[in-house]
Design a protein around this nucleic acid. Structure first.
Lengths: 121, 121
DNA sequence: CTCATTAGTTTCCTAAATGAAACTACTTTC
DNA sequence: GAAAGTAGTTTCATTTAGGAAACTAATGAG
């Protein structure tokens, strides 16, 4: 008789596993947390502001990541009727529900570095 | 005069940003949270157990991810002196420090699905 | 001697992520 | 009219992630 999964087979675990997959799909990538973190620090940032704040990102990735985040309702995009058009990006209320995750990850990253290198800074 | 980053330039933010990068480097990928989550449910699982429990993973990815996790001190690997050798994987104490992150992500994933599809299940 | 089991490794391949640089399009300033 | 600033898009290339299938190596059962 063939052995099957036992630990992960119950409904509660399946729901959890799917939830983790869902979340990772939305949040994976090199830049999402940095963009979201920046938007939690200063609300209403323009494209060029974000390009300056998020160190290392290029226009293509920033543009693509902003689109992804907007599609997933985590940020909003507002075109302003200014002389050269400006666009404001802002974290949504739903996007703010990610703050606990971002905080936990930042906290853990600091603990990890301390554990590996034996220093807090 | 050229504009520079202001929001993310202070020391506190830089530390946070580096922490998030560190954490993401260790935790990114399709399988790490699923493997770790499984190891939190049942401690001391063997390679074939994990292969069965983590639905969809293949031997190559499982082997590679287990090596990564072990290198980062999140799990331990113990070779047992049995007839066909068996290997036990277990989450470390330090690895358990990830439980709050995994819980937050699972919780958020459920909320995300509810927000998008309007249902809890 | 053959088959099954354990724990992987190796090879080959495709798809996705990321990046640098150039380009578009519009407006204002000099 | 040229330069600079807005917000991107497009092209081309490289790197990384992920996966299927075959293979290794050791042991034990029949």
């Amino acid at each position: 008789m063939k052995k099957e999964a036992v630990l992960n087979s119950n409904q509660h675990c399946q729901t959890r596993i799917r939830a983790i997959s869902d979340a990772m799909e939305v949040l994976s990538g090199k830049w999402k947390f940095h963009i979201l973190g920046t938007l939690t620090r200063g609300d209403k940032l323009r494209f060029m502001d974000l390009l300056r704040e998020v160190e290392g990102i290029g226009t293509k990735m920033l543009s693509k990541e902003l689109q992804d985040l907007e599609m997933n309702h985590l940020i909003s995009r507002t075109v302003l009727n200014t002389k050269p058009v400006t666009v404001e990006y802002e974290i949504t209320e739903f996007g703010k529900s990610l703050i606990p995750i971002i905080d936990e990850i930042a906290k853990w990253g600091i603990a990890y570095r301390a554990f590996i290198y034996g220093k807090t800074d």
